[in-house]
Simulated scan of single mutants.
Amino acid sequence: MKNSILLFIFLLSSTFCLAQEEDRVIGVVVNSSNGEPLESVNIVNLNQVIGTTTNKKGEFEIYAKANDTLHFSYLGFKSLKVRVTNDWLKFGSSKIELTELALALEEVVVNQLKLTGYLEVDIKQVPIINNNYRYSISGLQNAGYEAGAPGTVSKIIGSIFNPADFLHRMFGKKPNELRKLKKMKEDDEIRNLLSGRFDREMLTVLLQVDRVDLDEIVSQCNYSKGFIQTANDLQILDAISECYEEYKVLSRGRSRKI
């Protein structure tokens, strides 16, 4: 009887471990032109909204289920989406090949300042630096607005009386994207990946929106053009999330008054 119990426990633990292993995929990412492993490749499971990166040998391991889609991206290489199959889950490592992009640098023209020696004249040649700051309105949790940009006051008033309707139209019929937004904020690996990116590619893929729509969302949420142009992907993510939370607060306030 005792041996039977031990055998049952052993089989149960083996099955549990096997199930855990089948929920993770492993692989190696290489340069398709020379077969060299690529380190620090960004890998995101678009379905589970979790991420990881490759090590020095190009190896990676990530939680995934059958039919999940993995998104591979690396600076200077064409991004790639790969579907997770049952065979990959069962039979081990897979080699992923990324193809290099031909990078063409645009010519940059630097205009030299011609100083005259007269302060009144020279100071007009110096470009004005617009520092954008964020501040909150009392009573609105997690709500913030930029200061220092033209039209700031009108933007604040416009947001109070007409909250982020554009954001609602974009995501109101896409509850999965809103859930992804929350998962992205909670996953430390995703946040680390986004903090070093400025191309918006991972955000557009995860949220299923175009780059133009993404910029429009942030713009409609009362962020300046300067912020949109200079912010990294993590800052854009936090801006969209903050805007949606603000929208929910204002919407609740309106419904109570009605």
Rank of each mutant, 00 (worst) to 15 (best):
224 S>I: 01
116 T>I: 07
225 K>Y: 12
172 G>E: 01
163 P>H: 02
203 L>I: 11
207 L>H: 11
173 K>Q: 15
132 N>H: 13
221 C>K: 12
171 F>H: 04
181 L>Q: 04
141 Q>H: 13
117 G>V: 00
113 L>H: 14
135 Y>A: 15
147 A>W: 08
161 F>I: 11
125 Q>H: 12
134 R>E: 15
176 N>C: 05
97 E>L: 07
97 E>V: 03
208 Q>D: 15
184 M>E: 00
103 L>H: 07
137 I>T: 10
192 N>L: 11
155 K>E: 10
156 I>A: 14
109 V>K: 10
159 S>T: 11
124 K>R: 13
158 G>E: 09
216 E>D: 08
172 G>C: 04
198 F>I: 11
135 Y>L: 11
225 K>V: 14
208 Q>V: 13
124 K>S: 06
159 S>Y: 10
226 G>T: 13
239 A>E: 09
227 F>D: 09
212 V>F: 14
173 K>W: 08
216 E>P: 08
111 N>F: 07
210 D>H: 10
210 D>M: 02
213 D>L: 04
201 E>Q: 02
200 R>F: 04
121 V>N: 07
161 F>E: 09
98 L>N: 00
225 K>C: 01
220 Q>D: 05
178 L>W: 07
244 Y>S: 06
148 G>D: 06
101 L>T: 07
168 H>I: 09
138 S>W: 03
105 L>T: 08
143 A>K: 10
233 D>T: 03
170 M>F: 06
166 F>E: 04
187 D>R: 02
223 Y>V: 03
241 S>R: 00
98 L>S: 00
203 L>T: 00
218 V>Q: 03
224 S>A: 07
112 Q>V: 15
138 S>A: 13
172 G>K: 01
226 G>Q: 11
134 R>C: 13
134 R>K: 14
100 E>F: 01
174 K>I: 02
146 E>A: 05
219 S>V: 07
221 C>M: 14
202 M>V: 05
146 E>Q: 11
233 D>L: 04
153 V>L: 14
113 L>I: 15
226 G>D: 12
231 A>P: 05
231 A>W: 00
210 D>T: 14
170 M>L: 05
193 L>V: 08
112 Q>R: 14
219 S>F: 14
99 T>D: 03
201 E>N: 10
140 L>K: 11
126 V>D: 15
198 F>N: 14
197 R>W: 02
169 R>V: 00
115 L>P: 02
218 V>R: 02
143 A>R: 05
239 A>L: 01
198 F>Y: 15
189 E>W: 01
122 D>Q: 05
140 L>T: 09
169 R>D: 13
178 L>Q: 02
102 A>Y: 12
98 L>W: 00
172 G>W: 06
180 K>T: 06
198 F>G: 09
148 G>R: 06
